[in-house]
Amino acid sequence: MVKNKPIGIFDSGYGGLTVFRSIFEQLPQYDYLYLGDTARAPYGNRSFSAIHEYTWECVQKMFAMGCPLVILACNTASAKALRTIQQQDLKNEDPAKRVLGVIRPTAEVIGNYTQTKEIGVLGTKGTVQSGSYLIEIDHFFPELKVYQQACPLWVPLIENAEYDKPGADYFVKEYLDQIMAQSPNIDTILLACTHYPLIQDKINAYLPKHIKTVAQGDIVAKSLVDYLQRHPEMEQSITQNGTQQFFTTTDDTADFDVHASMFFNAPVKSQFVSMKG
């Protein structure tokens, strides 16, 4: 018998913890369950079908662990799996359960940050190739010009704790030079991967001072606050004991805890959960 009904927060690895941190700061009263599919990370270069399979499997696991609401705090999973989960997979589940992503709430507000109406989007190869941000931003801000740049080496650098070493600077500057070469009028850059806040200061150091970088944590947290206000039936189904549980699909939980604590900016003590894949 499951007692807690926590908000589930999913990521392929550690990046979703930057979103979780912002959510917990704004909504500390709820119970939370975080699941990082670190055994199969990174998702960025995987196919649509693989990402959907892995993401849906993890979402089902979180449902079974008591979560009525799951946030895909991963841009790649949001880009490549969320639509299928929402439109097809959930039909066979409890109709009260919900799965939300990070792309739509970001697209709803990103146009408010720019003066030139030209923005850059930095993300994984999977997120960029999906075109999800181009589609979603166009729904809310059709006047914007959006330029994208895949940064395939950033997640490995961050997850291996190499991001603050001199060798990482080359790859940070390389991708920033590539996106800025697309237009001199870009004045806002969206960090469309939840890992990237860990190198936001380094990114800012290689950009002109007038360019704003936008991380997603606070945006997603504010969107969740609004969602729960608009859906009292969901809000009332979530238990409020202020608890946090962390799970990883890697059996080396000690290693996960070291990395996760860096992303969450607080000590993390995780448990192993097995997946079939």
Rank of each mutant, 00 (worst) to 15 (best):
V2A: 13
K3Q: 14
N4D: 15
P6K: 01
I7W: 08
G8C: 00
D11Y: 01
S12A: 06
Y14L: 12
Y14I: 07
T18S: 06
S22G: 06
F24R: 14
Q26T: 13
L27W: 10
Y30L: 09
Y32L: 10
L35E: 12
G36W: 07
T38M: 10
A39F: 08
A41Q: 09
A41I: 08
P42A: 05
S47H: 05
S47W: 07
F48Q: 07
S49Y: 07
A50L: 14
Y54A: 02
W56T: 00
V59A: 05
Q60L: 13
V70G: 03
S78L: 06
S78T: 04
R83M: 11
I85V: 08
Q87Y: 04
K91T: 07
E93D: 11
L100A: 02
I103L: 04
R104S: 11
R104G: 06
V109I: 11
N112Q: 15
T116D: 13
G123K: 03
T124M: 03
K125S: 15
V128F: 12
G131S: 04
Y133G: 00
I137G: 08
P142I: 05
V146W: 10
V146A: 05
Y147L: 10
C151I: 10
C151A: 14
P152F: 09
L153P: 07
L153C: 11
W154H: 05
W154T: 01
P156S: 06
L157T: 01
K173E: 08
I179R: 02
A181F: 11
I189K: 01
I189P: 01
H195E: 08
H195G: 03
I199T: 04
D201G: 13
D201A: 13
K202V: 07
L207A: 06
H210I: 03
I211T: 04
G217E: 07
L224S: 03
Y227P: 02
Y227S: 02
L228Q: 01
L228V: 01
L228T: 02
Q229F: 12
H231F: 12
E233Y: 15
E233H: 15
E235Q: 13
Q236M: 12
Q236F: 12
I238P: 03
N241I: 03
T243G: 01
Q245K: 15
F246Y: 15
F247H: 09
D252T: 12
T253Y: 07
H259W: 02
H259V: 14
M262Q: 14
A266Y: 14
A266P: 06
S274F: 13
K276C: 14
